[in-house]
Lab assay of single mutants.
Amino acid sequence: KKVTINGVEIKFNNPEEAVKFALELAKRLNLRIEFHGDQIKIE
């Protein structure tokens, strides 16, 4: 399963991993996060 985070394609074994990764990243950098299907936007 491929997920695009800020235009960067990252391959994950499952979608939950991708979501956890994105949330952790957003929390660490104190950023806002948006989900659009397989696209995750962090700003």
Score class of each variant (00 low, 15 high):
Glu16Met: 11
Ala18Gly: 04
Thr4Gly: 02
Gly7Asn: 05
Asp38Val: 06
Glu43Met: 14
Ile5Glu: 02
Lys20Met: 08
Glu16Asn: 08
Ala18Ile: 09
Leu23Asn: 04
Ile40Thr: 01
Gly7Trp: 10
Val3Asp: 03
Lys20Pro: 02
Glu43Asn: 11
Glu34Lys: 08
Lys20Asp: 04
Leu31Trp: 10
Glu34Asn: 06
Arg32Pro: 03
Ala26Glu: 01
Asn13Cys: 15
Leu29Val: 03
Leu31Phe: 06
Lys2Glu: 05
Thr4Pro: 03
Lys41Trp: 13
Leu23His: 04
Ala22Pro: 00
Ile10Gly: 00
Leu23Asp: 01
Glu16Trp: 14
Lys41Ala: 07
Ala26Met: 08
Glu24Ala: 13
Ile42Asn: 03
Ile5Met: 05
Gln39Ile: 14
Ala18Asp: 01
Asn6Arg: 06
Glu24Asp: 09
Glu43Ala: 11
Phe21Trp: 13
Ala22Leu: 14
Ala18Arg: 03
Lys2Arg: 12
Gly37Arg: 07
Val19Ser: 03
Gln39Val: 14
Ala18Phe: 13
Ile42Ala: 00
Glu17Arg: 05
Asn6Ile: 08
Val8Ala: 04
Phe21His: 01
Glu24Phe: 11
Phe21Val: 03
Val19Ala: 06
Asn6Lys: 05
Asn30Glu: 03
His36Arg: 10
Lys20Ile: 08
Glu9His: 09
Ala26Asn: 01
Leu31Ala: 12
Arg28Trp: 12
Ile40Glu: 01
Lys1Ala: 13
His36Ser: 11
Glu17Ser: 08
Glu16Ser: 10
Arg32Gln: 05
Gly37Trp: 08
Asn13Pro: 10
Ile40Gly: 01
Ile5Trp: 13
Asn13Leu: 12
Asp38Ser: 07
Gln39Cys: 14
Glu34Arg: 11
Val8Asp: 02
Asn6Tyr: 12
Lys2Asn: 09
Lys11Cys: 15
Gly37Glu: 10
Ala26Cys: 14
Ile42Arg: 01
Asn30Pro: 03
Asn30Phe: 10
Asn14Gln: 05
Glu43Gly: 13
Pro15Thr: 12
Asp38Tyr: 08
Arg28Ile: 10
Asn13Arg: 13
Phe35Ile: 11
Gln39Leu: 14
Asn14Gly: 06
Ile5Asp: 02
Ala22Gln: 00
Val8Gly: 03
Lys27Asp: 04
Ile42Thr: 01
Ile10Val: 06
Lys1Met: 15
Glu9Ser: 11
Phe12Asn: 01
Ala22Arg: 00
Lys41Glu: 05
Asn14Pro: 08
Lys41Asn: 10
Leu25Arg: 00
Glu24Tyr: 12
Ile5Ala: 03
Pro15Trp: 15
Ala18His: 03
Val8Met: 10
Thr4Lys: 07
Leu23Ile: 10
Ile33Arg: 00
Leu23Lys: 05
Ile5Thr: 02
Glu43Phe: 15
Asn14Trp: 08
Pro15Tyr: 14
Gly37Tyr: 08
Ile10Met: 08
Val19Thr: 06
Val19Phe: 12
Asp38Glu: 07
Leu29Cys: 15
Ile10Asp: 00
Ile33His: 00
Glu43Val: 15
Val19Cys: 15
Asn6His: 09
Ile42Tyr: 02
Glu17Thr: 06
Val19Ile: 13
Leu25Glu: 02
Val3His: 03
Gly37Ala: 08
Leu25Ile: 10
Ile33Leu: 07
Pro15Ile: 13
Leu31Lys: 00
Ile42Gln: 00
Ala18Met: 09
Glu16Ala: 11
Leu29Trp: 08
Glu9Ala: 08
Val8Lys: 08
Gly7Ser: 03
Ile40Ala: 01
Arg32Ile: 07
Lys1Trp: 15
Arg32Glu: 02
Gly37Phe: 09
Ala26Tyr: 06
Gly37Ile: 07
Leu29Ala: 03
Phe12Trp: 05
Gly37Cys: 11
Val3Ser: 01
Phe12Gly: 02
Lys11Ile: 14
Lys27Val: 06
His36Tyr: 12
Val3Arg: 04
Glu34Met: 09
His36Gln: 10
Glu17Gln: 09
Thr4Ile: 14
Asp38Ala: 05
Ile10His: 09
Ile10Thr: 03
Ala26Gly: 04
Pro15Gln: 09
Lys11Arg: 12
Phe35Arg: 03
Glu9Arg: 07
Asn14Arg: 08
Asn30Cys: 15
Ile5Tyr: 12
Phe12His: 01
Glu43Thr: 15
Lys2His: 09
Thr4Phe: 15
Leu25Asn: 01
Glu24Leu: 11
His36Phe: 12
Glu34Val: 12
Gln39Gly: 10
Asn30Thr: 05
Lys11Thr: 13
Lys11Glu: 12
Phe35Tyr: 08
Lys2Phe: 13
Gln39Thr: 15
Glu34Gln: 09
Phe21Cys: 15
Asn13Met: 11
